[in-house]
Design a protein around this nucleic acid. Structure first.
Lengths: 221, 221
DNA sequence: GATACCATTTTGGTATACCAAGCCGGTATC
DNA sequence: GATACCGGCTTGGTATACCAAAATGGTATC
């Protein structure tokens, strides 16, 4: 694999894994020495990650994109539009057997499963559901939205009950799609996204002092 | 303005203006000499334009993205989802006076207006309508979809009647949004997009031999 | 005439040197 | 002590040299 892809992948993982905090300043020289690559692949990685919304310009320089509560609300509206469109397409397909693969993915999580895995599966559920639609642009949009939400969701304080509720809602959505009931699937998915948004924004808003104490830039709504 | 932005802007204009045909191969060295910049800003421009969908990788190299009829259909589904979501938000706003600015923009076109201007206004209508929603992500999605559709729409064979019909449909959509009737606006917009897609794909499909004769790569649906 | 093979050229990937703009710290002045 | 100024240092922007891989074109072989 090329250096360019290596730097991009590793830097993305560091940002998503909050090893570099939201709002932190980045210099091309630091990344260069940190990953043992020259500035050319580093710049390519920065340009790509900027379009993913993980990195912002800070004057002339670079910074890890801050968490922006207003933006999280807008992303929820955006993902509702594209996810609902995707699920309607999928519910109208003749072959909806892909649903079962997603259901199996959900069921691979239990009480023993580490939190990190729950997080990943929670995102992949939405991405894989969008993939079933067969529309590359809806898929890309959902993947993009999930990437932008990832760090915020990781910071969200979620209790066991919330995880279980999300799990149940995911299964209910799959059941509606499996039965071909597009309207029901759309309704359930909309409610799921709205609830997810409310819990997320509330949690981060309540926690914003603690998050800032950890050095994370959190922009209020 | 920096060289990076210059190269990006000029190259984008050449691609969108079909001065470089869909499917044409690009080399970094050619762009370098063509725009009098070095490879660093050239690579930055290529990376950005790749994310816009105007440039694709061709093996190890680069090419201007071909026109893909199947992709055009998928983009129509995508833009319907986001544009309808945006227009529903806008119809629910208290202050919908931005509508009048868009109406004035439409009215600035008449029989004397050059075709190029009709084309630009036809795209800007959808972009500005999405902007009124206030949602940055819906706006970005519509802008992205329009960029990807731009060359195909320019190649489309459109008669005077089709232009007039689109103009009337645009005004009808605005009227529905102005009156706050979200459902009617959504219905009109969906129909407009579906019709636009059908005419576009049909026109390009019928013309695909002629387009290929002009050296344009057109991938069938 | 078709094809397999080799030398040459071209091309993207990478590393690095140089530059100007901007940031930062120190200092002189009031 | 506050402030305005100045000089060095850091940083992104740019140009360019070098490399390996892939494309290219010519040639020998069948």
């Amino acid at each position: 694999m090329s250096q360019m892809q290596n730097v991009e992948r590793q830097l993305r993982e560091m940002i998503l894994g909050l090893e570099i905090g939201p709002g932190e300043r980045l210099t091309e020289r630091w990344i260069e020495t940190r990953f043992g690559a020259s500035r050319t692949p580093v710049r390519a990685a920065l340009l790509r990650l900027e379009t993913e919304g993980l990195i912002s310009r800070d004057g002339r320089g670079w910074m890890v994109a801050p968490i922006n509560l207003a933006e999280l609300g807008q992303i929820a509206v955006y993902r509702e539009a594209v996810e609902v469109a995707a699920v309607r397409l999928t519910a109208a397909l003749e072959d909806r057997s892909g649903i079962d693969v997603i259901a199996a993915m959900l069921d691979s999580c239990d009480a023993e499963t580490p939190r990190e895995e729950w997080h990943r599966v929670g995102m992949d559920f939405h991405i894989e559901l969008a993939r079933l639609s067969g529309n590359e642009f809806l898929l890309r949009a959902v993947r993009d939205a999930m990437t932008r939400l990832s760090r915020a969701r990781w910071l969200e304080v979620r209790d066991e009950a919330a995880l279980g509720r999300a799990w149940a809602e995911h299964h209910a959505i799959l059941a509606a799609v499996r039965s071909g009931d597009a309207e029901e699937a759309a309704r359930l998915l909309s409610a799921h996204i709205a609830g997810s948004r409310d819990r997320l924004v509330t949690s981060l808003h309540d926690d914003r002092r603690g998050l800032r104490a950890r050095g994370f830039a959190v922009v209020a709504a």
